[in-house]
């Protein structure tokens, strides 16, 4: 099993993601600089980590979405490789057009950093299969622009086709329909604001994030 974490200038959860994936799954994890024009061969999972890529200039994730490596990430996603964007990584996936919608500033203009309880709305995805019959998990959010927005038509499609994967039980940022995470139509790209990389061992208060990484790699 092989994973890669993409490192953008301003990423700050890249090391966390590497450690989280290694300890949760035993997979080897390569760190890939955003300026690369090739990805390591044989990848089963690509993670876009949290942080403030390019200082959030212009819009969160906008510049990172145009990084050279993203052409390769798109190609790999097109071949069915699992891609997970966490927090800033979710914003990058939306800016890159790999996931629908956008992330707006939090409704109350506050940065929120705390554990949140999430409903597993779709437990049949390659990222959530490991939760089995569990429909409630806990991870930590840390965001100032995590307020998911999609127009009514897109929202209806996302809900109707099971693309909404996680919802907040107690919405911390004003996200439309309490959406915390979603997948693309093909089911191999997941974006979520809560951090599985901050919930992968008991000392962190939750191990539910470890299950997400295990699921993603078990299905590879």
């Amino acid at each position: 099993m092989k994973a890669a974490v993409i490192v953008f200038p301003g990423s700050n959860c890249d090391r966390d993601c590497k450690v989280a994936i290694e300890r949760s799954t035993g997979a080897s994890v390569d760190m890939v600089w955003h300026g690369e024009t090739t990805l390591p061969s044989g990848l089963d999972l690509i993670v876009l980590p949290g942080g403030f890529s390019y200082g959030d200039y212009l819009r969160c994730g906008a510049m990172a979405a145009l990084s050279p490596v993203m052409t390769e990430v798109k190609a790999a996603a097109g071949r069915g490789v699992a891609v997970v964007g966490i927090c800033n990584g979710f914003q990058i996936l939306c800016e890159a057009g790999l996931l629908p919608g956008a992330l707006l500033r939090n409704e109350h203009l506050k940065y929120v950093c705390k554990p949140v309880d999430l409903a597993v709305v779709n437990g049949q995805t390659r990222f959530t299969a490991g939760y089995g019959a569990r429909r409630e998990v806990t991870m930590t959010v840390g965001n100032g622009e995590g307020n998911f927005f999609a127009d009514a038509e897109t929202l209806a499609r996302l809900e109707g086709e099971g693309q909404v994967v996680f919802k907040y039980l107690d919405n911390p940022n004003g996200s439309t329909a309490n959406i915390a995470g979603l997948i693309n139509g093909k089911g191999n790209i997941l974006g979520l604001m809560p951090h599985p990389d901050r919930a992968f061992e008991a000392e962190l208060g939750s191990t539910d994030g470890a299950i997400l990484f295990q699921s993603a790699l078990a299905s590879a």
């Binding site: 212009l58 819009r59 906008a62 145009l66 939306c94 800016e95 629908p100 919608g101 956008a102 707006l104 927005f149 999609a150 127009d151």
Partner: peptide
């Protein structure tokens, strides 16, 4: 392509 995100 860049300056605006026409979703929002």
């Amino acid at each position: 392509k860049l300056l605006a995100n026409t979703v929002i």
